[in-house]
């Protein structure tokens, strides 16, 4: 059964936001102003909340294929990532539609803020995935398991089409409001689907 979690996210990481926005080195004199704008944006973006839905599946990995109960996925990179795993957690995470509204609001009125909102959205959803995986790691550790790095459709040769299978398996439209369009784009845009392998033993 798919489970749903809600997160209040930790504070925004300024440096990360600047990095995602392509702000380069922060020693430039103009950055005091920029810091002010980033602050305004993070303040406005405080409305975002994280939601994750996930499910653990038994898997088998062989010959460049990973077998899940809901699908068989062909991918060399994923097979490599999941080698040695007998189960994997499949999850979808989102910071919701609110950030898309903000990006859109500034898209046609203030491109600086639009750029930072984009960057904040990316930082937020990455922070959400990190938080989720950290919690998960602690949980599985108690049973003697460790986690592989999370792997998303689009990494290596793992096709974006796999998102369709993940969103269906996790019923994430109903559970967390994440939907997929014909072009395999997710709405809300700051959403992630990923697979995390579990293996027996200490973290390698």
């Amino acid at each position: 059964m798919v489970k749903v979690l809600f997160y209040s996210l930790p504070e925004c990481d300024f440096e990360e936001v600047l990095r995602y926005a392509g702000a380069g080195k922060t020693s430039d004199g103009k950055n005091e102003d920029m810091a002010e704008i980033v602050k305004e944006c993070t303040e406005e973006a405080k409305i975002v909340r994280g939601r994750v839905c996930f499910e653990k599946y038994k898997i088998s990995v062989e010959n460049g294929k990973v077998k899940f109960p809901f699908a068989e996925i062909e991918s060399e990179s994923l097979s490599k990532n999941l080698s040695g795993c007998s189960s994997a957690v499949v999850f979808a995470a989102t910071v919701g539609i609110g950030i898309d509204r903000l990006i859109r609001k500034y898209g046609s009125t203030d491109t600086v803020k639009a750029l930072f909102m984009q960057a904040i959205g990316t930082e937020r959803v990455e922070a959400l995935c990190d938080t989720f995986c950290r919690d998960l790691s602690e949980k599985v550790k108690r049973n003697g398991y460790s986690l592989k790095p999370r792997f998303s459709p689009g990494y290596g040769d793992l096709s974006l089409d796999v998102q369709k299978k993940i969103t269906e398996a996790t019923q994430c439209a109903k559970n967390i409001g994440v939907t997929l369009n014909d072009g395999m784009l997710m709405s809300p845009s700051k959403s992630v689907t990923a697979i995390v392998g579990l293996y027996k033993g200490e973290e390698r």
């Binding site: 392509g22 702000a23 380069g24 430039d28 103009k30 920029m34 491109t111 600086v112 750029l115």
Partner: peptide, 14 residues
């Protein structure tokens, strides 16, 4: 010349 970065460029544009 990469002495100005995207956010600065946009601030000037605004």
């Amino acid at each position: 010349k990469k002495t100005v970065y995207l956010p600065q460029l946009l601030m000037s544009a605004e």
